[in-house]
Amino acid sequence: MRNYNLNHLEQLEAEAIFVLRETAAQFEHPGLLFSGGKDSIIMAYLAAKAFAPAKIPFPFVHVDTGHNFHETIAFRDKFVEEYGVNLVVGLVQDSIDRGTATEETGPNASRNALQSVTLLETIDRENFDACLGGGRRDEEKARAKERFFSHRDSFGQWDPKNQRPELWNLFNGGKGQGENFRIFPLSNWTEMDVWQYAKIEEIELPSLYFAHERDVLERNGSLLAITDFVSANENEEVRKETVRFRTIGDATCTGAVISNASNLDEVIAEVSASRITERGSRADDKRSEAAMEDRKKQGYF
């Protein structure tokens, strides 16, 4: 008899597609949070698979801090065009202009935390009852407790101590007025799974993920790229390095790593030898021991 077993990537793929279809079936106005980072690209790719040959039945949502690498935005626009989906953009700048968010000040000011405000405003404005996110449980210790279907109250808050139990593959998307869900199809994927899947499926990823030469400076142990939003202070030295990014977020807090890995095979080899987690280069997580939990409670991704 044939051996009816799937390898780990095929199992993860089947699970993610199931979750994406449950989202379409159980909600009226879902949106797919698309940052242009690798996790959201994989999620969008899986969404295309889940509903083929029909188009993905929900819009992409980008919460834009305005502090982007230009490569990310170019990639986002090309991707959206290719998949023929609608793109909804929520601008952090708009929230600041409206006075609903206040820009941080000081040497390490970042718009990262402000994204929560803009995200909640966008959910409200567009009337989304569910937002698909590319979050993975292996990313961070607070995320390890996250559900596939994660309930949010009418303030967008996550209550980690009072989550719905999630059994088998029976996902309960029931909700009251004004409440909504965050849904994470990639919950069980690790960083390595994402790279391996990208390799096997030949998924194109932004050039930032591969080694390139760039002007960087060192700040609080992270290597930050010199962009329109990051410039050297008096005592900081700008130098040219061959780097790549393991995660892509706001340009003000996404650290680069020194690397020569210029294709997926080399990246996979590098990640498997790495002794530092991918978020180890994220300044936003280093603010306190429970930085992620606190942001998530306030409505972060």
């Binding site: 407790k145 980690p160 069980n188 690790t190």
Partner: peptide, 8 residues
Amino acid sequence: TIDVAYRY
């Protein structure tokens, strides 16, 4: 420990 945590 409060809740089920998933580890990989």
